[in-house]
Write a protein that binds this DNA or RNA. Structure first.
Lengths: 197, 197
DNA sequence: CTATACATACATACTGCATGTATGTATGGT
DNA sequence: ACCATACATACATGCAGTATGTATGTATAG
């Protein structure tokens, strides 16, 4: 790794980190590229050297947040008890906790689907898709006969949607901790009843 | 009603209708005010006479779509059988059907929360809030002991989130009718199990 | 009943800002 | 020495919002 690409990578990373922060605070439309480069201590030339356009910069920020969340969810699910319902609840809890953080709320949940296209919020193709563990858990439950056959993937969509709405509800609550507890309890009820035929 | 305000109302309505169409096709950011007034056959002066800014125009378009959807959901729920589960399923079915329509997908589900603020997607304060029937149904179920006490409102959030994700999933599917059927069946499973203690 | 005073509904022109692009420059690698 | 990479600078374009102008309808006083 030469000194030059090292510097380039560092600049790129600084831009991405700055972008996450500014997009979190002011959103995509409310953040000018000038503001980003000023905060990052470079010029617009540097930005447009590393990224094709403003959207590409956002995508890099989005993926960084997504990787972070997906990792935490997968780890939580893997560390949980042996039953699918347990793993599902654990992964979901990790996801809800992530939804408490402003940068996850804004970049991943709010702006992401709109800026990058709605398709991103319903496909599982992304290598670091944050909700893959949910589908995995439901497919497992399907094999064990806990849910009607052939419904696992559609149910995963529903559970994931419920999780996202939870994030929004928690985010706007005056007492976020209380909201987190209430939504979490409701989510546990939902999962438990869903996986108990 | 004088001739003048009549004319004004007509112009305003033309702008709103045109806005719904253009926002549906190109989104909020992708639709310039110039494009709207050109399509509506007026000038930018007319637009800024009737609306404070571009966002106010969007809000008018948003509310028009919301009124339409909420009316259909409430009607479907009211026309359904007597049990809460039946009413919930009926209202949800009407909502999913509405989610098949492009203008509902784009204006209400996609752009709305971002342009008008995320809070709009989690509060029930809107007079024509499309998901009020869901909360009503769950509260009824709670009174009948079908769900654990004190969980109705949180569960309503979850169900509504599931519904929205359903809309997205249906929208991007290659075969929307098949997706609608699959998601609808999964939703029925979810509601049935949730309301069966 | 008509003339005047005013409000409403629109059109036009202008300003400032943001994006993207094109071009210039400096520096590390070979 | 030469070249590619990594940036900086200057510029063109387009859009949102505002300020100002104009015409037409409406109310009211004499």
């Amino acid at each position: 790794m030469s000194k030059k690409v090292e510097q380039g990578d560092a600049t790129r990373q600084r831009l991405v980190d700055t972008a996450v922060a500014l997009f979190t605070e002011h959103g995509f439309a409310g953040t000018s590229t000038t503001a980003v480069v000023k905060a990052a201590g470079v010029t617009r030339g540097a930005l447009y050297h590393h990224f094709a356009d403003k959207e590409a910069l956002f995508e890099a920020a989005y993926q960084q947040v997504q990787r972070e969340v997906a990792g935490r969810c997968a780890a939580a699910a893997q560390a949980a008890e042996a039953t699918p319902a347990d793993r599902l609840r654990a992964g979901m809890a990790a996801y809800l906790d992530a939804c408490l953080e402003p940068h996850v709320q804004r970049v991943l949940l709010r702006e992401g689907p709109l800026v990058l296209g709605w398709e991103r919020s319903v496909t599982y193709d992304d290598p670091f898709c944050a909700r893959r563990p949910m589908r995995t858990g439901l497919r497992e439950a399907e094999r064990l006969g806990l849910v009607p056959p052939g419904r696992a993937d559609a149910l995963a969509h529903l559970l994931f949607g419920a999780a996202n709405q939870s994030g929004a509800a928690i985010a706007v609550a005056s007492d976020q901790a209380a909201a987190r507890a209430e939504i979490g309890a409701a989510m546990d009820v939902l999962i438990t009843r869903l996986l108990t035929p």
